[in-house]
Design a protein around this nucleic acid. Structure first.
Lengths: 325, 325
DNA sequence: TTGTATGCGTTATCAG
DNA sequence: CTGATAACGCATACAA
C-alpha cells in the first residue's frame, strides 16, 4: 500500500501538504490540492489508520461490554449504541464476556492501552473497586442503576420500577408474589431484591426464598420455572419476571399444563419486546435502545457530565397493560 | 502514560531489551528481565496498542458486517463469531449496516486502511463486483450460499434446504404453498426463490406472486402477514417462512383469528431458535452459531483455504418436526 | 501558502 | 546476551 510519502513524491509536494489536503486544512493552493488528489487516485492510496491513531493518541473506537449478544435486551441496547455511534463516526469494539471478570478486565486493559477511547458496560461482573482503578484511562459508562458518582450511569430506576410492578400486582389482589432475576449478584438485581423485600414487608408477607428464581434470562429459563413451581408447597399467585423472554417461556409452559393466565398465575415482566406484544404479556416498558443511544452521548459529553456532576440518568418506564395480569 | 523508553531508563536497559521482555523473547538475562518487570510495575506501564499495530502492520481485529444486531439470527451468528474470536485473541469491530451499501463500503475501506485484518459479511447488500475490488486487502468471508470462488463462504445450502422444506410440505399433502423472504434481493433469498419456482413447477402449480411475502424478518412482520392473507382470493394452505420469528408472529396472529394450525394453515420455518421450541413450530434447524465459529476459523486459515480452493462450506440442516405442519 | 523536522511508541535488523 | 538505530505512516510546531 502506498503511503503519504509516495503521494507527496508523485504530486511533487511535501508530506505536510498531502496531510493538509487529507484533513481538509485551509491554505492549500488549488493546483497542489488537485495534484494530491490525482496522486491519491492513481496510487489508490488510503490513510493507514494505525499511524493516524498513534499520532493522534486516540482511536475513535468505543468498547462495548455485554455478557452475550444473543439476547434481546442486550442486543437492543447495542443496537442503540451502534445507531448513535454511527452518527459520530465511532467504531464499536465488542466484548462478549459471559459475565466473566477476566474478560471485563481485558476490555479495561484495552482502554488503558488506548485501543479504545471509551468503554460502555452493559453488564458488569467486576467489582466496583477494580473499576475505579481504570477511571483515569478514559470515559467509562455504566448501564446500570448505580449509586456511585465516579462514572456516568444510564438505566431505569430499577428499585422504583420493580416496586411499581409489585404495587400493580398487589392492586390486582395479589399477595403471594414470586419474582425472577437474571443474576443474583448483578447490580440491577440487588436493587430489585431490595424493592421486593420492602414491598412484601409492607403487605405483611414473609419472604419465601423458593419464590425467588435466579438465573432467569431466556425463554427456556422461563419455561423451566414451571417445574420448580409444581414442586412448591405454597404456591405464589403472581410472577414479576426479569424480562419478556422469561415471561414468554413461563406463560407458554404454564398454558401447556392448562393453567389459566392470569387467573391461576399472573405474569408481569419488563422490557416490552415484540414477543410480549404478540403474546399479550403485560409488561413494564424499558427504553433499551435509548439506553444505548444515551451511553454514546455520555461518552461524547463525558467531560461536561463529570464537571456538572450530572452523571446519573434515569429513564422513565411505562406500564403496558395486556392480558397476563 | 509511561512508554517503553521510560521503562528502559528506569530499568537501566535498552529499549530493545524491554521489547524483548514484553514479547517473551529468549536471550534476556534474569536480572535484566526482573528489572524490567519491576519498572513496568512501578510505572504502571501498558503497551500502546496503536504503536504495536503500526509497527506490525496488523491489528488482530476482525470486522463483522450485520444489518441489525437486534435479531436472533444475526446475533446468534455474532455470538459464534465472538466465542471463536475470543479463543484466538481477536477483537471484533461491529458494522451495523441496516443493509445500506455505503455502510458496507465503510467497513471495506477500513479493511483497506488496515484497521481490521479481516471482514465477515453476515449480510451483504453491496454488489459482488464492488466486493472484488477489495479482495487484495485482506480475508473476506461471506456468510451466504455463494457460487463464486473468490471468497470463502459459509452457509447452509439454501436452495437445497428450501427445496427440502417444500418437499416436506408437499408430502403432507400441500400444494398451495406460500413463502416469505427477508429481503427480495438478498443472496440467500435468490436461492430460495429459485428452489420455490422449481418445486411449484414440479407439482404443476402456477406461481402466485401474492403468495410471496417480502420483507419478513421479525415477529411483527410475521403477524402482519395475516392481514394480507385475509385479502387473498385464493389462499395458500401452507407457509414456508424466513425464520422462527416470522413463524411465531404468523402462528400467534393466525390463532388469534381462530385459525387452526396446521389444519387451516401449515407453517414451516428455518433456524430452530428457542421461540420455535416453545411454540411448537416445525422448523428446519440451521447451525447459526456454528456459522459464526467457522467464519473466524476461515479467517485464520484463509491462506490454506484459498490455496486448496476449499472455499465453500455448507452446513447440514435438520428438520425438527413439531406441531405446525 | 509551503516545507522541514520532529514526535508518536513499538518492533526488527544488525552489529557487537 | 545486549543495544543502537532504522523503519512503520501520519500529524504538527515551527520556520520560511
Amino acid at each position: 500500500m502506498a503511503n503519504i510519502r509516495e503521494i507527496a513524491q508523485l504530486a511533487g509536494v511535501s508530506i505536510t501538504t498531502v496531510s493538509r489536503v487529507l484533513n481538509n486544512h485551509p491554505y492549500v493552493s488549488k493546483e497542489k490540492k488537485e495534484a494530491v488528489h490525482k496522486a491519491i487516485e492513481t496510487l489508490n492510496y488510503k490513510r493507514n489508520v494505525h499511524a493516524l491513531h498513534l499520532s493522534k493518541g486516540s482511536s475513535n473506537m468505543i468498547g462495548v461490554v455485554i455478557p452475550s449478544i444473543n439476547h434481546p435486551y442486550f442486543s437492543s441496547i447495542v443496537e442503540g449504541i451502534a445507531d448513535q455511534a454511527m452518527k459520530h463516526d465511532l467504531q464499536l469494539v465488542l466484548f462478549q464476556t459471559n459475565y466473566e471478570t477476566t474478560k471485563e478486565i481485558d476490555s479495561l486493559e484495552l482502554l488503558r492501552g488506548q485501543l479504545i477511547d471509551g468503554l460502555i458496560f452493559c453488564s458488569r461482573a467486576i467489582s466496583y473497586d477494580v473499576l475505579l482503578e481504570y477511571k483515569t484511562y478514559g470515559p467509562i459508562i455504566l448501564c446500570e442503576d448505580s449509586d456511585q458518582n465516579d462514572f456516568p450511569s444510564i438505566s431505569i430506576p430499577h428499585e422504583e420500577a420493580f416496586q411499581f410492578g409489585m404495587e400493580y400486582l398487589i392492586s390486582k389482589g395479589h399477595k403471594k408474589i414470586a419474582y425472577t432475576l437474571g443474576r443474583l449478584e448483578g447490580p440491577n438485581s440487588l436493587k430489585r431484591r431490595k424493592a421486593y423485600e420492602n414491598m412484601m414487608k409492607r403487605i405483611n408477607q414473609r419472604i419465601h426464598n423458593d419464590w425467588i428464581f435466579d438465573e432467569c434470562l431466556t425463554i427456556n429459563d422461563g419455561a423451566q420455572i414451571i417445574d420448580k413451581y409444581m414442586e412448591l408447597k405454597e404456591k405464589p399467585t403472581a410472577f414479576l419476571v426479569t424480562n419478556d423472554q422469561v415471561a414468554a417461556g413461563l406463560k407458554l409452559a404454564a398454558e401447556e399444563l392448562h393453567f389459566k393466565i392470569p387467573q391461576d398465575m399472573a405474569i408481569l415482566s419488563f422490557d416490552n419486546q415484540p414477543i410480549s406484544q404478540i403474546l399479550g404479556i403485560s409488561t413494564i416498558e424499558i427504553q433499551t435502545k435509548e439506553i444505548g443511544r444515551l451511553a454514546i452521548k455520555s461518552i461524547i459529553q463525558f467531560e461536561e457530565i463529570i464537571d456538572q456532576k450530572k452523571n446519573k440518568i434515569l429513564l422513565p418506564f411505562t406500564l403496558i397493560e395486556r392480558t397476563t395480569v
